[in-house]
Design a protein around this nucleic acid. Sequence first.
DNA 1: AGAATACTTAAGTCGTTATTTAACTAAAGG
DNA 2: CCTTTAGTTAAATAACGACTTAAGTATTCT
Lengths: 112, 112
Amino acid sequence: MTAPQITIDRVFQALGDPTRRALVEKLSQGPISVSQLAQPLSITLAAVVQHLQVLEASGLVQTEKVGRVRTCRLDATGFSLAEQWIADRRALWDRRLDRLGDLLAEPDAELR
Amino acid sequence: MTAPQITIDRVFQALGDPTRRALVEKLSQGPISVSQLAQPLSITLAAVVQHLQVLEASGLVQTEKVGRVRTCRLDATGFSLAEQWIADRRALWDRRLDRLGDLLAEPDAELR
DNA sequence: AGAATACTTAAGTCGTTATTTAACTAAAGG
DNA sequence: CCTTTAGTTAAATAACGACTTAAGTATTCT
């Protein structure tokens, strides 16, 4: 029951579900309890809890239970991971376009 | 058979699958053909083609067929959408933390 | 103490989706 | 032409994942 690995895999899989993204969008307005999260949604509280487990395991959400109410808030960890992955792909991709541009700009260049 | 809507939904759902992310990672090294994409993977060519359809529908990949070979390359559209969504959530979230910081910095502030 | 609240967990259902097989089309090459 | 190469498509299967129901635990309220 130790902290599960937070991976790009988990993050994107978590964000892949529309209901979970809805939870995240709600949470970006500020921390709230599980039942408050569930209330506007047309799904069971149990379903929300299960989504929260996924979101927490992916480092997108952090929760803390005090008394009988669990308060949920966004966690930057997962977001940073996702951003980083996209930025990395983009970087490689842009770099390639740059090199291509260089070559086109210098028609005399060796193409070996 | 017109161009399907590119939505955050499609983008994240597409990125949610590890095989598809592997394809994207390969493509960030540069444009290649479908069979070259499939070769290092332990799945059928047919499966790769289907993943490519998902990736293309989500605006992450662009393909062009010349002769009998289809060349695939990354497409910025989907990536920008994903980045934007994350940035938006982050923005709201950070703004909240800022306001909280302001309040804490001014213990005399009205909390109404 | 008893009732209501706020979750939690397990088990089952049902729809979606990743992947395969197989049969097909179209372009190159000999 | 005949064959190989490169990809496409459809149908079937099999695994996964979202959601529900139902029963349980721990707090708080009265």
